[in-house]
């Protein structure tokens, strides 16, 4: 009876494993980028704050470029630029590098806001108590500043986690790319996209809620 050839196979349990593996890769690349981007971003934020006019004339416009050009263009550009200068990077390294700089550009402003949020009299007081510059930074500025900008930082981190889906243009198989592959094979777009979306949502929603609640509690 059924004589026509069928190229598509149904959604199997093993495919869930494939999606899970891809989800782990999404977590890996966004975790690495967020961690290294935050370190770099805090450094940039400190440079912006201490650099004053010099910082806002040199570093700020450069960081601004990363916020004014779509991430997807940055990824394609860097992926094609790396071989020109003799680097041979795989999609993962390339994606992680671009996401790190992107995160750093976003975190830099957040970090500068955090330092600026600490009232100057407070810092003068700590200095006149005999603290060194770095002690003041460590024990006064960091705890107070971090509190004010922590919710903003969570927003940036979640944004980067969601934007990591774009690394798929380089051929890195993360969650969204994996679901696209499965859709091509099974022709069940709705089910598979729902699973992928549910994963992103399950990751992002509780963290966003937690940050909201924290913000409310701290602002009281």
């Amino acid at each position: 009876m059924e004589s026509s050839l069928n190229f598509f196979t149904g959604f199997k349990v093993l495919d869930l494993l494939f999606l899970g593996e891809a989800a782990a890769r999404t977590l890996l690349i966004s975790g690495i980028s967020i961690a290294s981007g935050t370190v770099l971003g805090v450094l940039f934020g400190w440079l912006l704050y201490e650099g004053r006019i010099f910082g806002s004339l040199t570093l700020a416009p450069v960081l601004d470029v990363f916020r004014s050009v779509p991430l997807i263009i940055q990824l394609v550009l860097f992926y094609n630029f790396a071989p020109i200068i003799g680097l041979s990077l795989d999609p993962f390294a390339c994606g992680a590098a671009v996401l790190t700089i992107y995160t750093a550009a976003l975190v830099a402003n957040v970090a500068r806001g955090g330092i600026e949020a600490v009232a100057m009299p407070l810092r003068r007081a700590s200095r006149s108590l005999g603290m060194t510059y770095w002690q003041d930074m460590m024990y006064v500025v960091a705890p107070i500043g971090m509190r004010t900008v922590f919710p903003a930082w969570v927003g940036v981190a979640l944004g980067v986690m969601k934007d990591s889906a774009l690394v798929s243009v380089l051929g890195y198989i993360e969650l969204l790319k994996a679901s696209q592959i499965l859709i091509t094979r099974t022709q069940e777009p709705f089910l598979i996209l729902a699973v992928a979306g549910a994963f992103y949502f399950a990751l992002s929603f509780p963290v966003a809620r937690f940050a909201d609640r924290l913000e409310q509690r701290w602002s009281q």
């Binding site: 969601k162 889906a165 859709i183 777009p189 709705f190 979306g197 992103y200 992002s204």
Partner: peptide, 21 residues
């Protein structure tokens, strides 16, 4: 919450392929 907690690319794919279902 769906708009804020899923990637924009996912939303595009949803309107592109998901509605195709």
């Amino acid at each position: 919450e769906l708009a804020r907690n899923t990637p924009a690319l996912f939303q595009l794919f949803f309107f592109g392929f998901g509605l195709g279902a």
